[in-house]
Amino acid sequence: MNGMSKFQTTVQDDSEKPMRKASEHLDHWYLEPDSPTRARVSNLKFWYGDGTQAIDDVSMPLIDKKVTALIGPSGCGKSTFLRCFNRMHDLYPGVRYSGEINLLPEDEDLINLDPNIVRMRVGMVFQKPNPFPKSIYENVIAGLRIRGITKRSLLDEIVEDSLSKAALWDEVKDRLHQPALSMSGGQQQRLCIARALAVEPEILLLDEPTSALDPIATAKVEDLINKLAGDVTVLIVTHNMQQAARISDYTAYMYLGKLIEYNKTNDLFTAPRCQRTEDYITGRFG
């Protein structure tokens, strides 16, 4: 609650700054007053190593234990924005951030924390399933190994728990020690989700997790995301608007590195406040 009011204050302060042009996009997001915020993005800008600015002054909340979808045409910066949350960009030279991503209620700025610590707290699932070339079991406990956890009984318990959460336990419980790469693409992606869940992330980032999957596998992953809502704060990039509508509670529409509109998914899709959003979701553009 405290974080919530902070968030609104910040934005109001910003919009009153005379230096700043009246940014149309900031007027177009709406927030339920009593929803607890897990993270607050304020005036985030991001530049790649070659100097290209990919994120231009984005501010938005990330609601606790809800699914927030990022939509927009290719190249609009939605994946770049997502990867700011676990500082994945820091692996590449010359990148630059400005602005803040504050975790609430602790009020810690992700942009100023040690990237390794950020990645321990913020999990990620990638576009292409990327299990390690090891056994299914080893994949699930990879994050725990990294954190130095070796107690066998604990590991066994977490493996069963995470695979169950990822709706994969029944399919693989008899072959936990077989190579993960022997599984189908959809299973591999659910394994990657189990791997991310095993370390109980505070925020789970999903970067177009179903774009490499067939429709049946996609449906399974979507089911899974629906089940996760309520337990985990999820931020998902998708280029499939129907998917965003099906699985998310909040949706942000981005275009050319800017946040055009942020709203509850239902409202954004049924009554967009912004002409550009409407053009995009009705298929007139993008």
Binding site: M88, L91, F126, K128, N130, G143, C192, V199
Partner: peptide, 20 residues
């Protein structure tokens, strides 16, 4: 992708190298 998977789980550079 393998590198990013390891870093994404919070591995530091040495762990990413040695374990993956």
């Amino acid at each position: 992708e393998l590198r990013e998977a390891a870093y994404g789980l919070g591995a530091n550079q040495w762990q990413t190298m040695a374990m993956y």
